[in-house]
Design a binder for these strands. Structure first.
Length: 317
DNA sequence: GTTTTATGGGAAG
DNA sequence: TTCCCCTAAAACA
């Protein structure tokens, strides 16, 4: 699925174009007709992401929770803000992060466009019809006077009360864009070191740390020089501190750029190339059998938790 | 044209 | 641990 960075970008899209607006909700596909009937005609009061979950609160304290799963996506049409590939800063406006390094900034001029927000974002031509004809299996359409959001393929799309939202939040580990830095670090370290489970599994466990998926997992383990099979309790506190700082940094880069840029520090041509080609963005993900960029050893591939795990057996001990 | 694959996760066994 | 759900695009034939 879209990992944590995309969900934060989607929430930002809703903050910009939907919050404060009356939303018409519908389910062109029909599988969310009841939920849409509850939401339609209400103002969206707030929207935010925690890990890979997005929450939007509507007038009357009705919450919409969406989880995109492995291939869900939102398509936005009409007045849309996008900063794909651009740099800038972002933070959830109602939350100050502990480092004070972020500030809410303008995120680009509105324009008519169609933007797909999934793991990959892409833009296509301006729709010539308003509202646009639903394409494919649209589970939920949220429509304001100027912007249309179409949701397809989610793993979860439901209306909840506050208590239901709390229940979901309670089982999520720290998200660097939500929690205080030091509190999050402490929680992360404690949750990892309490268990004998391999660190490669723990990073994917949303109750340990929220928002990391299969790509960030592989890349963070590489960046930490850590063998994916190391039991959580044997990972040193120093290494876990570095990993929390790294996730804090990678998530912000991902939200700014709209891509999982896990080889950071690229400039100029190399950066442009990395934006266009996934294989140029990562150290190990998707590179089974290819030489490690650092030592030349062929990248290994194994299954962990039904997912493909990539690592360099030489650089990661 | 058909099969495979994907950046998840929950329930069942 | 295995199965199952959701959808579209890429990969195969």
């Amino acid at each position: 699925m879209p990992e944590g960075h995309s969900v934060h970008r989607i929430a930002r899209q809703f903050q910009t174009n939907f919050v404060g607006q009356i939303c018409e909700a519908s389910s062109p596909q029909g599988r969310f007709s009841d939920g849409a009937a509850v939401l339609t005609g209400r103002v969206m009061d707030e929207c935010f992401a925690v890990g890979k979950h997005m929450f939007a609160r509507f007038e009357g304290d009705f919450w919409l929770r969406v989880h995109l799963g492995i291939y869900g996506a939102w398509d936005f049409t009409g007045q849309v803000h996008s900063t794909l590939g651009q740099t800038g800063e972002y933070s959830r406006p109602t939350v100050e992060d502990s480092r004070g390094e972020n500030s809410l900034t303008s995120i680009g001029a509105p324009r008519l466009a169609r933007v797909r927000m999934a793991e990959q974002e892409s833009e296509s031509d301006v729709a010539d019809q308003w509202p646009p004809e639903p394409v494919g299996a649209v589970r939920l359409r949220l429509l304001t006077a100027t912007t249309c959001g179409d949701l397809r393929g989610p793993t979860a799309c439901e209306v909840l009360e506050q208590s239901g939202v709390n229940k979901v939040l309670d089982r999520l580990g720290p998200d660097p864009l939500i929690v205080d830095y030091d509190d999050g670090e402490r929680a992360f370290i404690e949750k990892v070191q309490r268990r004998a489970t391999p660190i490669g599994q723990l990073l994917m466990d949303q109750s340990v740390v929220a928002g990391i998926g299969n790509i960030y997992r592989a890349e963070m383990l590489y960046r930490a020089g850590l063998d994916p099979y190391t039991p959580g309790k044997l990972v040193t506190t120093d290494t876990l501190r570095e990993m929390w700082a790294d996730w804090w940094k990678l998530l912000r880069i991902g939200v700014e750029v709209g891509q999982m840029m896990t080889i950071d520090g690229l400039e100029g041509e190399a950066y442009e190339r990395a934006l266009r080609h996934r294989e140029d963005r990562h150290w190990v993900y998707g590179r089974a059998g290819e030489p490690c960029r650092t030592c030349g050893t062929p990248i290994m591939l194994a299954e962990m938790q039904n997912r493909k795990l990539y690592w360099c057996p030489s650089c990661q001990k």
